[in-house]
Nucleic acid binder design. Structure first.
Lengths: 214, 214
DNA sequence: TTCCTTCTGTGATAAAAGTCACTTTCTGGC
DNA sequence: GCCAGAAAGTGACTTTTATCACAGAAGGAA
């Protein structure tokens, strides 16, 4: 398939709010890039020179601690943009988070110098950018909430709900250690709390996976 | 002083990046509003119908917990905009935080329906909005950091540094209870940790105030 | 099968933070 | 000066979370 054609396909499929002119302009100037599952797209301290749209797949965003801890913040999915890439982009400042592809992911990369043009020419672009920002901002506030106000059992439940919902599954393939890392706690704590949730009938535990009972 | 003139004065003083046309347009369509110290500007769940620029004074942003706790997130100062007001504005969704004037504050209120016009007409406006967003976003990440990765003693120190720096003083008028509320902990914990910091020579404690020793 | 690694379960203990109860200190107003 | 109320100090205790030390279970590879 010819690349320009592909970008249009992705835009039509996942960025439906884009007006035709915007779609064509991005198809013209953007570049498709495939990221294999597990690869890091962006790292703390790295300068960003492009805006990034997620055309397909799923990207996990982490905040990195001083000792290499990686705490899960949120997912970026098909139709999202990396808010930070747009914003850091405008000032070329350094990023503070780490983005890793969890599935095989296709992104559309747009050179930052186009931001001016898109912003002032296409209303649907600036709507998209602001709306994207707003929803990331609120997601960030939600995460902050759960960390500030909730104890670990509630944080865990919030985390699991999020995972089940975001992945659209009722059985989640994940280990206790992975969860513990995402929540910046220890594996034992997660195991114990999960056990408690199982006793309460909320979930069922298996090796390498958790099923939602609800 | 005639209001339109006043807006221009404020814009010239604190929003120097605005191009002349933008300045005049805001002076024309914006409204000045005085908020006495202590008054709430915006509340969780409230719908926002205006964009808000801080012309003078200082606004404290809190995140509200389920039981009425109010945790400090960041300050908005002269020359800042309320990022949420711009973004919620574009979609008229509900706010999730609470903004309270800590000093007597003057704000410039801009009707949301002008966002389209400003965004597409004035490059300095969209730069301003995005840059504002970016910096709030990063501030939020910093707060998240300290909550996720730091124990209470470090959070307290981070909080104090922030206060001293943001207010530009070396003696801070505040009670232990106020700090405890801002950090969502208890007064005793704050008292004990402050005492420890005093013993370590970082600060000196007085009734109703704390002096930075550095 | 037999190892070996990874995942999970669990008790014991330690450390951090929150809670309760009370005292002391300061300060402003009478 | 005296008193009331707010602010701050402190000991004792509980709860939550983290850490340590294992043990058992599951599954893959030789």
């Amino acid at each position: 398939m010819e690349p320009t054609q592909s970008i249009i396909n992705y835009l039509d499929a996942s960025f439906k709010s884009f007006e035709p002119g915007l779609r064509d302009r991005i198809a013209e100037a953007g570049v498709l890039k495939n990221i294999p599952a597990g690869e890091v797209i962006m790292r703390t301290g790295q300068y960003i020179k492009h805006s990034v749209l997620i055309a397909s797949g799923r990207v996990k965003l982490y905040r990195e601690g001083d000792d290499g801890q990686e705490v899960f913040i949120y997912y970026l999915e098909e139709g999202n943009a990396c808010a930070l890439s747009m914003i850091c982009a405008t000032k070329q400042e350094s990023s503070e988070i780490m983005a890793k592809a969890v599935d095989d992911t296709t992104i559309i990369v747009i050179p930052i110098r186009m931001m001016d043009e898109l912003m002032t020419t296409y209303r649907s672009w600036y709507y998209f950018v602001l709306e994207n920002y707003r929803s990331r901002f609120e997601e960030l506030l939600t995460v902050l909430d759960s960390v500030i106000f909730k104890a670990m059992d509630e944080r865990l439940e919030f985390y699991l709900r999020n995972q089940f919902k975001s992945k659209g599954v009722d059985e989640l393939t994940i280990t206790h250690l992975e969860i513990a890392n995402d929540l910046n706690t220890s594996r034992e704590v997660v195991s114990r709390l999960l056990k408690k949730m199982e006793l309460n009938g909320k979930i069922r535990l298996f090796r390498n996976s958790i099923a939602w009972v609800g």
